[in-house]
Simulated scan of single mutants.
Amino acid sequence: MDQFKGADGWFKTIEDELGQIGTIKELILDRANNFSMGSMRRVDDNGIGQIEEVEQPTRGSISFTISIPERIQQKFNPYSVAAGRKYEIGTEFQVDTRYLFHGPVTFVECVNAPPGTLASSAVALVREYLRSELQKLGGTVELLVVGPSPFHADFRIKTMPGAKPEEFDPINIQKARGFDICTFTFHQEAGIPLEILKRISQSIISDEFSLYYELVRDREIRSDQLQGIAIDLDILVDMHQTRGIKGVFRRLFRSSHKAREIILDILTAEAAEANAKRSNTQQLKELKEQPGRLIYQDKLQDQIDTSFITELRALKESASMLESGRTKEFEVAVLSLATLLGAASGAVASLIAK
């Protein structure tokens, strides 16, 4: 935060750098003074996650429209790259980022999309295009995302004349292969502008998405801890598989420290699992107590129920078993050495007696 000279500096830096991207129009920033530290996971070129503390607003918003010409879309759209073809999603996109208590949520709207558009692919397209443009600027603004995307959904708004029927559910989720389709239906006698309906729809799902992505970030951080412990266990196994006198010395004098280190890391990770379960359950409880309904409560609960306790216990058993084998090997080595020293002492005493 210090490098931006407070909240105003933070927003001003973003405004200045986004303003240098020629395809961005109608840039609007709703500034806020509420900031908090949050943990973000950055993945390097080797797929290894690194945890960073990032300060960001817990209130406010950033919105703009962005134009991405069709001729370059295939280059930036991961779906097009994977399929080897272009997706028809239009060229104008409305991007709205809301900063909330648990973290930011970004909505991408296809403004001039043809019917049947795979709208979710626009999220990836805008993300990769913005990353490229920000890198060209070489400034301080960087786009951080939670990925790979935990789930995909297209959100649509539908209007119908008249009052809403008593038993009608205005929110419908259609399960589909690859992408769910969530439709918000508004019955209205007086025409309410689509922009207002869009804001209402975003407000309904923003808080639960903010919590959802925090749960995903927390899961990824714990997963990285598990991966690190597994790598250390592989090193320990390698020590025990090394043959010859070199292997004996590695097991007797180095593997004990490594095994203790692994077991301590596992105990720390097990405590983190218990804390995450308790904290995340409380956060979901508080969200459920707020007015309105949760659309994706099952997905929130799935993230909370994700646990690495079974894997951690298996790693601990493996480390303990290897350490137990090393202890027995050390006892045998000491006993053998004592026998050799005893025999040598007996031989010396015999020579002296003669």
Rank of each mutant, 00 (worst) to 15 (best):
L130M: 04
Y99N: 00
N275P: 09
G247W: 05
F107C: 04
N112G: 03
L194W: 10
V43D: 09
F330A: 14
S203I: 09
E323A: 13
L264H: 13
E167Q: 12
A7R: 02
L100R: 06
V248F: 14
E55M: 01
K277A: 13
P161A: 11
P170I: 05
L194R: 10
R243K: 13
L312S: 05
F151N: 08
K175V: 09
V237S: 15
H240R: 08
I200N: 12
Q174A: 13
P57A: 02
I229C: 06
F11W: 04
T65Y: 03
F184D: 04
Y213S: 03
S223T: 12
N34C: 05
L215Y: 05
I51C: 07
D298A: 14
E142I: 01
A119G: 06
L233C: 08
K75V: 05
M1G: 00
T268A: 13
S36C: 07
F64H: 00
V111M: 00
V146R: 02
S67T: 00
K277T: 13
I72F: 02
A259Q: 05
L134P: 01
F168E: 07
E142Q: 04
I21W: 01
A113F: 02
E195I: 04
Q74M: 08
L197F: 06
A344D: 10
I173M: 09
A314W: 11
S256E: 14
L236M: 08
T281S: 14
S324F: 11
L144Q: 02
M37Y: 15
D44L: 07
P104W: 00
F4M: 03
N112F: 02
Y79G: 09
G178Q: 08
Q74I: 03
C182R: 10
K75M: 08
S63A: 09
V81D: 11
S39A: 12
D16A: 03
E26H: 04
A32N: 02
S336T: 15
L130P: 01
A113T: 02
I173S: 07
I21L: 00
V334E: 11
A259K: 04
F155R: 01
V126K: 02
K86Q: 09
Q3P: 08
R177V: 15
A343Y: 06
D180Q: 05
A347K: 08
I205W: 04
I68L: 00
S318I: 10
I231F: 15
S307I: 05
I171C: 04
L130W: 00
I66M: 01
P148A: 06
D154K: 03
P78V: 04
E17Q: 03
R219I: 10
S320P: 08
S203K: 11
I309F: 11
D169E: 15
R98D: 04
I171F: 10
L197T: 06
L267F: 14
L144A: 02
S201P: 08
L335M: 14
Q174H: 13
R278A: 13
G90N: 03
